[in-house]
């Protein structure tokens, strides 16, 4: 009797161990980010931040015929709208809400959103600035747009760099890295466009 039982018990213990290891490894690897973590906060706030960049780009396309500015705006619209889709898909996959009623920017140290609304995010244009852009036209609209978008990109780069230091999540790291590199390059391009128009760099 005991002779037959021992291998069974050893086998059972092995299966238990294997099962627990599998679960532990799975939890550590996939580590679905939490609702208060930097990954979810970044995905939510950067979506709002991007949405304004898309809006500004559409406005300037309506306000000028300049090919270079219209093409830059076209690029920003498509890139950032696609990135909003990626970040929305993360939140869907993680099963997390798309919003945090406690306020934006709580994930990024030093930017806790004091109930300041979306304006608490770095680089966001005010409603008045957007209204002025909608009224401007030609080179005036181009210069206003370039200055607003440079500030907007700088804020975006700050947010992306913050999540790079706060999170080791693969896909978050990858997208944040492309935002830092892409938006930095565009800041240089936009400053060159300001110089071409005889306007001071931003």
């Amino acid at each position: 009797m005991t002779r037959g039982r021992r291998p069974t018990v050893v086998l059972a213990a092995l299966i238990l161990l294997a099962g627990l290891t599998l679960i532990a490894v799975n939890m550590l690897r996939s580590g679905a980010p939490g609702t208060n973590g930097p990954e979810a906060g970044f995905a939510r706030d950067m979506s709002t931040h991007h949405a304004q960049a898309v809006r500004m780009s559409f406005i300037v396309r309506d306000r000028t015929d300049d090919r270079d500015v219209r093409l830059l705006a076209y690029d920003i619209i498509n890139t950032q709208q696609a990135q909003i889709g990626m970040m929305t898909a993360w939140l869907d996959e993680w099963g997390l809400p798309k919003t945090d009623p406690a306020g934006p920017m709580r994930w990024m140290a030093g930017h806790a959103g004091h109930g300041g609304g979306a304006g608490a995010m770095p680089g966001m244009a005010t409603r008045d600035q957007l209204a002025d852009l909608e009224k401007a036209s030609g080179e005036d609209a181009e210069v206003r747009f370039l200055r607003l978008m440079i500030a907007h990109h700088r804020g975006g780069v700050d947010m992306a760099e913050a999540v790079l230091t706060l999170s080791g999540h693969d896909r978050v790291q990858r997208l944040a890295r492309t935002m830092v590199d892409g938006q930095r390059a565009e800041i240089g391009q936009m400053n060159a466009m300001l110089r071409e128009r005889g306007a001071p760099e931003a």
């Binding site: 069974t8 018990v9 086998l11 059972a12 299966i15 627990l20």
Partner: peptide
Amino acid sequence: PWGTIAFFTVIGLVAFVAIGY
């Protein structure tokens, strides 16, 4: 058959935890 009971109990437990997770 204590061995068999232990064996299936453990498998059941692992399955329960995995499905719950």
